[in-house]
Every structure is written in structure tokens, then in C-alpha cells.
Amino acid sequence: MNHSPRLFQLDALRGLAAMAIMLFHLDLVYRIHGPFVRGYLFVDMFFLLSGFVLAVSTERKLKAGIGALAFTRDRFVRLWPLVAVGAGVATARAFAIGMADPLTLLLWLALDLAMIPSFSGTGPFYRYNGPQWTLFYELLANFLHALVLRKVPTRWMLALALALGVALIVTVRMHGSDTMGVDAPTWDTWWMGLPRVGWSYVLGVWMGRKYKDGVRGPALPWWLTLALPVVAIALVPRLPLRVAHGDLVFVMGFLPLAVWAVAQSRPPKALKPAFEWFGNYSLPLYCVHLTVLVWISELLGRAAWVQATAVGAAMLLAFVFSRLISFKGRPTRGKPDLAPTG
């Protein structure tokens, strides 16, 4: 059986998103007020990419009879190394700084490794590693995709995405920014992450189906399509809009167009190994960087040289884990006659 080529330009986009999120956390931890203060919006792109690539690569298998539980189990097995790496590094810091007694720390580690969120109502969604919350919602979206979304006709998928978009607008305006899902849920807030994940993921599924059906638009130079999201995230804070409204413009107006432009771009095939490596490298980087940034700030302060050291240490640790553990990226395969060949 011939396998269709990966849309490796999406791997590069995922890598750029992970770098921007790391720089957002650098801004948050070290209070530098740099250009990536809204880098958290690239989390929404992760969900959009997930829906897109699974629609392109996996829906045929889902429609062939893979059960929702079996599919979600396979996805969990694929993502769990990220959970283990992120929680493991964060646990080392917790023991080093004496965050709690050893038995409590081990209990927290067991709960995080089992993907059981914190229901304390305070602090992060997971006890150790904040970015792990996105993996929980990705698995939830995958489960609902296999259970329900695969049965939704394409003509109704956009309507469902738009309904979730309305919910997202209401939620972001209520919350004040598009940062829902990060904090531990309460009885009042447990639902607020769902519109954020739902809008991007469902729209991504619709876009992936249209791409798979051969829909195309004008193609931009590949390097420009990858540069535009990075430039745009730096420009969002400069918009004459409140934070909530600027976030919505970026997530609902810009991100879908940006992902579509990258998907149909045609980078040189010579870049494929580098782009695929960058996409896979982004996974451990996403999961370890925040702990490293915080830990080094606690040890050395917030000077400029410390910031550079923290970023370098996070990238180096992620590289080590990328070599020690197989972090296979999400499948991004297209039809042989439709995938970019330039």
C-alpha cells in the first residue's frame, strides 16, 4: 500500500507555535513585556491543526469501524510520553524546592500521569505541568470525533463550528481573554474551555475535509505563510481593541486563514526532513519548557542573561528527550494527487 506524503509544512507551523508559546511563558515568568504577550493564542492553533490533520488522515479509518474507545486509547498511548516527560521534569522541581511532603508529591504525580485533573478550584488544571491541560482536551476532542463528529455530514460541520464560535465569543467576553481551560475547574468554570477547544477543532475538521476534497485557493509563497502567523501574533496587542476582542479577531478571523494558507503552500521537498523534525521536536519542547523557565528564574533571578540561559536550557532538555523517546507527530497525510509537491 502506498502511503500519501505528509503535509510537512504543518509540522513547521506546529514547531513555530511551540516556540511562540515558550516565548509567551518567558514573557510571563520574567515580566519582559516582549512581542509574544499573546502567544497563548497559538494553543488554539494546536486544536485547529489537530482537527484538520485527523480529518485528512484518519477519518476514513474512523468510518471503517474503529471504535471511539479504541481510537482514544491509541491516541492516549501516543500522547502519554509527553505527559510523562512534562510531569517528570516538574516533579523534579517540586522535590527540589520542597513544594509539599514526598507522599503528597508522589500522589500528585500519579494523578497527573493518569490524566486526572485537579478539582481544587485553585491553581493549574494539572498540579505539576500547566501545558498538560491541552493534552486532556485534545484526547476529549479525539474521543468525540470518533464517537460523533465522524458521522456529521460536511455540510453541517461548518454550522456546528459556527455555533461553537458563538459560544466562544460569549465565553471570551465573559472571561476577558481567550485563556480558558488553563486553571483548575470549578462548578462555575468547568465548561469554559469547551467552546475554545470546540470552535478550533470542529472548524479544523471541516477545513480538513474540504482540503481532502480538493478545494484550493490562491497559493502564497511558503515562507510567507509560515512568517505571517509569527508577525500577526506580535501585532495583536497593537490592535485598538480590548484584549478579549483582539483575541477573538486572531482566533476566529486570522488563524483559520493562516492554517489554510500553510496547508496549501508548496515548500521545497528538501526541507521535509527539517520540518518534520521541527514538528516532532515541538512536542517535548511544549511539555518541558514552562517548568525549566520557572525553575531557573527561582534559582538565578530574572536578568537578561538568565532569560537566555532558561530558553537555551529548555530547548536543550527538549532535544535530549526528543532523542531518547519517540515523539511521533500527529499524522498529516494528504491524498497523493492533492498534497503539495513543490
Rank of each mutant, 00 (worst) to 15 (best):
D188P: 00
G51Q: 02
M180I: 06
L54I: 12
L69R: 14
S326A: 14
K61F: 07
A308C: 04
V236G: 06
V259Q: 02
T58Q: 15
L113F: 12
V306S: 00
P256V: 02
D337Q: 14
L149H: 09
P336M: 04
R333M: 13
G279S: 02
R150V: 11
G198M: 05
L241Y: 05
A92E: 01
D101K: 11
L203D: 08
L162P: 05
V152E: 04
K63P: 02
D213P: 04
R38P: 02
A92L: 13
T341W: 12
A310P: 01
F71H: 14
H145Q: 11
A308K: 01
Y211G: 11
K212F: 07
F136S: 06
A339S: 11
P340N: 08
L226F: 05
P81R: 09
V56N: 13
V43F: 03
Y211T: 11
R155Q: 08
A94L: 04
N2Q: 14
W108L: 10
R60H: 14
G214T: 12
A232L: 13
V43T: 13
P256I: 00
G301L: 06
A146M: 00
F52M: 15
A84V: 09
S282M: 09
L255N: 08
L54H: 12
W199C: 08
V197L: 09
F47N: 06
P218L: 08
P268T: 04
V56E: 10
L107S: 14
L28Q: 15
A20D: 12
P268L: 01
G312P: 01
W133I: 01
L271A: 09
G301Q: 09
V53T: 15
Y30W: 06
M22H: 06
E298H: 15
L26N: 08
T58R: 13
E298R: 13
L168K: 04
A96I: 02
V311P: 00
T91D: 03
R266I: 03
W305I: 02
W190L: 09
T91P: 03
P102G: 00
V43N: 09
M99T: 13
T122H: 15
L135F: 10
V215T: 11
V89D: 06
A18I: 10
A64N: 14
Y40A: 12
V231A: 15
T122Q: 14
V251M: 00
L109Q: 10
L168G: 00
L62T: 08
A270F: 02
P273F: 09
F46A: 10
G130P: 03
R216C: 06
I169E: 05
L23F: 14
R38K: 13
H145M: 13
V85H: 04
L290F: 07
M207N: 03
K212W: 07
V170C: 01
L164M: 08
A96T: 06
H245Q: 13
S297F: 00
Y281T: 06
R242D: 12
K272E: 14
A55Q: 05
H175W: 09
F36C: 11
I233C: 01
V53C: 09
W295A: 15
P331L: 08
W190S: 02
A234E: 02
L26V: 15
S282K: 03
V259G: 02
G217N: 11
L79W: 00
L224S: 09
A184E: 05
